[in-house]
Structure formats: C-alpha cells, structure tokens
Design a protein around this nucleic acid. Structure first.
Lengths: 399, 399
DNA sequence: TGAATTTAATTTGCCTGGCGTAAAAAATCC
DNA sequence: GGATTTTTTACGCCAGGCAAATTAAATTCA
C-alpha cells in the first residue's frame, strides 16, 4: 500500500497538467482546468512552475474559439520542444533504427543501420548500438551531452525495472544488464524496454490509440510481443516483465508442446522457404505490401499456406487476449502484416470464430503498418514519459 | 489521468493505516508508523479519527515485545469487529452459501442452501438469494438494518462496476442489472462480483496469499474463472469485467472452435457419465477427496481419462497465464480439484512442459480445497474492502 | 475616440490535510 | 522520584481548494 504525501500529490498533478498540454496541443489554462478538473488557481501555479522550468511555452495566437471572442484572449500553452532531447531505438535482428526526438516527441533525425546483428556477442552489439546512437545524435546537429536519456526497444523478455534482458532472440546470452552497459558507454541514462511496449506507448502518444486509456497491442515480428495499456499506463507484469506471446502454448502435439512462435513466428512462416530470401527481406522492410503480395502470388502455395496457418493461430490468440483484458481496441503491428490478405483474412476469420459471444463487439481490430521509425519513436516516448514523470524543479517554485 | 487533492491523500493514508491494522492484528502506533512509513504524528491523527469513528479499538495488553520492556507500554490497536457487518455469498448452480461477517472478516453465521437454481427465471433466483441473505442475517442474531452491504459472488462474466451480469451459467438471461435488483429487494447496498474475484480477495485477506501483493488465482468450477491480484488490488479488465477462462480457445478442431470449457469445464468432465450423478454430487460438495477418488477408482476409466485430459488443458492454460502475468504464485481452487491425483498430476505435468524456460521457477502452483464458506467469506471481503475504502467521517475529525 | 463590457489570468486570504521537528504529557518500570 | 518509551500537542511548511478582488487584454458600443 503506497503512502501519499504532498510531494506525490504535486507530482501527480504536475504530470497531469503537463500531459494535458502535450496531448491537447496549444491549450489555454482555462481549458486545462476543465480537462484536469483542477482549480484555476492550481493550474495557474503549476503552469507557472512549468514555465519557470522551461518545459512549456506561451503563445499569443491560435485561440480556436469563435474568432469574434470577446474579453481577454486566452494565452495558449504548449510543450517546449527544446526542453529535452531523447534517443529512441528499435533493435531488431536484421537492422537497427535510431531516432532523436525533442521533448514534444517530434523526430529530429533518423538513422537506419541495415546490419544483421543476430546472435553477435554482446560487445559487438553494444558497439553497434553505441555507434548508431552517436551518429544519429550528430545527424540531428547535437552532441550526446544534449541528450537527456536513451530508450532501446528490444525484442524478447525484457525486465524494464532492472534494465535486464532476460532473453532475446538477438542475444546469445541471457540475463544481461544491458541498461547498465549502455548507460556506461554513452554516459547517458539508458532505459531498456520491450519493443512491443515501446510501440504500444508510441500508439498512445502519436498513433492509433491517442484517445484511449485502455488498449492492447500485438506485435508480429521475429518475436511475438504484447503491450497492454491500462489506465494510460503500460501494464507490466508482476516483475516488471514484458510479455512474450511466442511462448504461449496452443496445445500438445506429437512433438511435444506446440508454441505460438512455431506457428506464427517470422521464421516459422518464412523458414520453410528455401529461396534466396527475397520474401524475408521484402517483408522485413515492412513497406510495399503489394510487392510482397506479388511475390507471394508468383510463388507456389506453400508460403500462402503458412501465412494462413499463422493468421489462424494469431487470430485465436488475440481472441484469448481479448477474453482476458477486454480492451476496446487491439492494434496489430509488425512485419508479418506484410503477408497481406491471405494472412489477414484468416486472422480475422479465426478471431471472429474464437471471440466468445459475450465479448463480441467489445474490441475492434486495427492493423497498423507503420515503418520502423515509428517503433523507434515509441521508444523515444518511453524515455520522454519518464522525463515527464520526473520531478524537475526540486520542490516548489521557491524564491 | 486522475487528479490528486488532499482528500484523496487522506483517503489513501487512512486506508493504508486501517489495512495495516487489519493485517497485522493488534498493533501499536509506532509499528504502524514503521510499516506505513507515515510519521508518528500522522499515524496518531489518523488513528484518533479511526477511533472516533469507532472503526478500531484500543487494547492495553498483548505487547509482544520483551516482557521487561521499559517505558510507556504500547497501546495496541485492532479493528473493531462490530464496526460493521456484511453478507457475502457464493451463488452456484446447485447451491448457495451465505456468510455474515463482521468488520474484521470473522464469520458470524453460515447458511448453505443446497438448491439447484440452474437456469431459473431471475425472479426465482432473486427470491432465493433474498431469502438466504435474510435467514443468514437472522441466524447471526442480527437484523438486515445492521448489515452495511452485501456482496454476491457469481460465476460467469460479471461487470462489477455497473453491477451487471453479462452472462452466467446460472441465469438464462444476459445483461441483468442484478445489483440494482438485489439492492432494492434488500434495501441494502449490494455488490456483484465474479466468484473467482471474490475468492481471490479472500485468499489475499485470509488465505494463501496474505503476504503477496501480486498473485493469480484460477477457479475450476462449473465455470472456469480467473482472478488477478495486482499491487494488492483486484485487476479488473478494461471495462471492470471479470475474466472467463472457459471462453479461452485451445484450437480449432473439426467441430469448430474448441474452448477450454469443453475440455475442462465441470460438465465436460462429468457430462459423459451417464451414472446417477454420484460423482457430480460428491465432487460438488468439495469435501472428501478420498471419497471421490474411491468412486473414480471403482468406476471404469472413462472418468479418469476425462480428468487427465482436463488437467492437461488447464495446465497449459495456467502456463499461458503465467506467461502473461508472471505472478509469484498461482492458486488453484474449485470443485474440480476433488478429481484427485490423476487430474492434478496431469495438470502439473502439462504445466511443467508448457511453461517457457525463461519463466521456469517464477511461479509456484498452490492447490487449495477450501470449502464453500471460504468463497462466501471472500465475497464478504470484497464488501468489506469497499467499506474500508469509503470515507466514513465526512471530512476531518472536526469538533 | 473613449468608456463599458467581457473574459482570462493572477493574486490574496483563509480553509483543510498532509509532513517534519521539537517539546510536552503520559504511563510504566526501577 | 528518575529513567524510559510512547503518544500527543504545538508550530511552521508545503500541497491543494474556494472565493473574491485585481489586473490584463481584448471587443463593443456610445
């Protein structure tokens, strides 16, 4: 049972005001007061403190109300883009994407390194990540000292709280304290988060869940991940663990346990193909569904069969997740979406079949084929969220 | 984003203190101060207000410390058993169990009505429930006016927040506002909760999860339910919904979707038996595992086969739930446990097989064969929890 | 043009309700 | 009575809330 004190109270309300300003663009104090249900007195005090800390800016234009508004015009407040800078990254088996974002979450620069880092030793991967972060920061015309924190989105079972990677397909080792490693290398606070969690928060901040406070996201990449947004926050398991959907069991077959990853993981779908890897690459790039579909159609039916089977397995899994969490929306992301209609249709069909009648209609499925930049931007959002939450001004406006 | 004000602060700390007193028996103010990390000043003020409201009592004995303690002896505080009374109930298809509990959760009287209410019209069920509540209250030597609230634990998909029963195996209708119905009949505030949630809180208060703040419970009865305790609170889905594990899909078979309930539901296991129902009754009574096992052994293998299959399905499901929630403990309850070793062994084996290696050892399985009273007591705990949370004294000690 | 009107934002008291420290009061043992 | 420990009281500080007055920056109207 957490105990409450004035400081906590102040932190909560500060975050509430700052987040309201972030979400609702330039906004006047009156409107903040309405939205947060804080008194105008308090809003005035808090915004003064935020202005003092340089986290927000005033703007004397853009009052959206009736142009013929009488009375003193509202002063609009907005997040100060230059209050901080963070780096967000998506680390995947065949590429790394870096993004430098300002305090508002705007992307200042992007860097994609199409390198296969699969199962390299930690030191090699850490070298590449460090290099990518540094380069991307330089591309943005900044220096690493200008960066307040870094968040790395990594596939696998990530323990955000401790910064440990429990297990990840791109690491040979298990239980690595990667956050400490990278913090030391970059001499900048570095957060580790599951890639699925990162893009979940990304969708909450910038994407297809902006207006929702509860939501579930399923990521279909090399790893099958899950992100749960619960009351505007990432829901992390009891130990602050991320979820790994690929470990879910569908049943026991002749060869032992059949896990979802063996049905619907990227390698399960593509692995049977002994081709030159055109599919894999086209799909991983995540762009040009039509291109991939053309490839699929030109090929024999094996890939299609695999895609249909995968879609079915995932449709069932999503139905099960909806049964457990009953979110108003489920967002699907990831490279596997590029498999196109055969996959999506079987997914939708299996979902429709498997969703219990009593929950029919509570959840809508949304497919999202954002580029990798968006994942990295999501990681940046994770980093920013922690900055938003942090106290900043020691205590009180003082002076 | 919730907004904080002094009232909320006070409510949080009051609950924290009251809950500490409840959990740690007679306890002195100093110790409360240590446990809650509130200052002795604040603890003193809050306890004074609680004493003023009659929610706690002082006791000038029982200081456990060194008998030769010098200085002013600690005054022990404990929850006032008579500060309130609630009724908790477990409503099941073949019986109803009622419990009257005091403010501490002690059971004052118990009433079991072995009536099959399966699929009766609402009015009939409501009549029986009303009757049961009234009788149990009288048995406790009380009148309904002495009862502060009632909580009914019901199988199925229950929407606690609105008091609606979305769907339940014991009701023909769906979407019933049963809380309103019973509140009106009893003219006492009545809460509806999933039976699984009720016993989950019961275990947190009185049972096998007293020391945990995260935990998962799986109930195996006519309905397969799930309760998740997250940071000392029941985790209710996005809509305040309870979970219905029976709706989980295991796969798509020749006859369409295969749900967990068809493999492991009570009727799935027993339904094939064309016997006179001795099994069903023996199992439902939940007592005397050995008796049931004797019946099982005397019978042919069909029941055993069904039990093994059910255990397997549930073992897999639990592994999946652990994959999603990573709780330190999973408690299994419900009549199906009475199926005995064949069932439990196959459950354990399937779980061990299905749990992903990276999560091996994070969760321990605990089996609990409490009687129905305990379920009802859990429902009482749900009612009490809401009383504990409620403000009581309007605001401040005043006077 | 200038005064009245209107709405926004800030400031000023005065309330509650936390916190902490320090000191006083209380209750027991020696 | 002195020593010791618990509990309460007193005081000042920092949160937030309300209400009312004040200041600010427009628009409207005479």
């Amino acid at each position: 049972m957490k105990t409450a004190d004035p400081e906590l109270m102040r932190a909560i309300n500060r975050l509430s005001v700052l987040d309201t300003i972030r979400r609702h663009g330039p906004i006047s104090r009156v409107e903040i007061s309405e939205r947060t249900e804080l008194s105008t007195t308090t809003v005035s005090a808090i915004t003064a403190s935020l202005l003092d800390d340089g986290l927000i800016l005033t703007r004397h234009e853009g009052d959206i109300r009736n142009a013929a508004a009488r009375g003193r015009p509202r002063v609009m407040l907005e997040v100060n883009p230059d209050a901080a800078r963070v780096v967000g990254a998506k680390i995947a088996a065949s590429r790394m994407v870096f993004v430098v974002a300002n305090f508002r979450g705007d992307v200042l620069s992007t860097l994609t390194l199409p390198i296969r880092i699969d199962r390299q030793p930690i030191a090699v991967i850490a070298d590449l990540v460090e290099d990518g972060v540094r380069r991307c920061v330089v591309d943005a015309g900044l220096s690493l000292e200008d960066v307040d924190s870094v968040c790395l989105g990594i596939p696998g079972v990530i323990e955000h709280r401790t910064g440990h990677i429990r297990s990840s397909p791109i690491f040979r080792e298990v239980n690595i304290d990667f956050a400490a490693e990278m913090s030391a290398r970059l001499s900048t606070p570095t957060i580790i988060e599951s890639d699925a969690h990162a893009i979940t928060l990304g969708h909450h901040w910038f994407g297809k869940a902006r207006e929702l406070e509860d939501m579930v996201l399923v990521s279909l990449e090399q790893t099958l991940g899950l992100g749960v947004l619960h009351r505007n926050r990432l829901f992390r398991g009891a130990g602050g663990l991320s979820h790994n959907l690929g470990d879910l069991v569908l049943g026991i077959g002749p060869q032992g346990v059949m896990r979802l990853s063996s049905q619907a993981g990227e390698s399960a779908i593509l692995g049977e193909q002994q081709t030159d890897g055109r599919f894999a690459e086209a799909i991983r790039l995540g762009r040009g569904m039509t291109h991939v579909q053309a490839l699929i159609q030109a090929d024999d039916d094996r890939l299609i069969t695999a895609a249909v089977r995968a879609g079915e397995a995932i449709g069932l899994t999503i139905a099960n997740i909806v049964t457990l969490f009953a979110p108003p929306r489920v967002i699907l992301v990831g490279s596997s979406l590029a498999l196109g209609e055969p996959f999506l249709n079987s997914l939708r069909d299996a979902y429709a079949l498997a969703i219990p009648p009593s929950l029919k209609g509570v959840s809508e499925l949304v497919f999202d084929d954002s580029t990798d930049d968006f994942w990295a931007q999501g990681a940046a959002a994770v980093a920013l969220y922690e900055l938003y939450e942090s106290p900043w001004s020691t205590t009180g406006p003082a002076l």
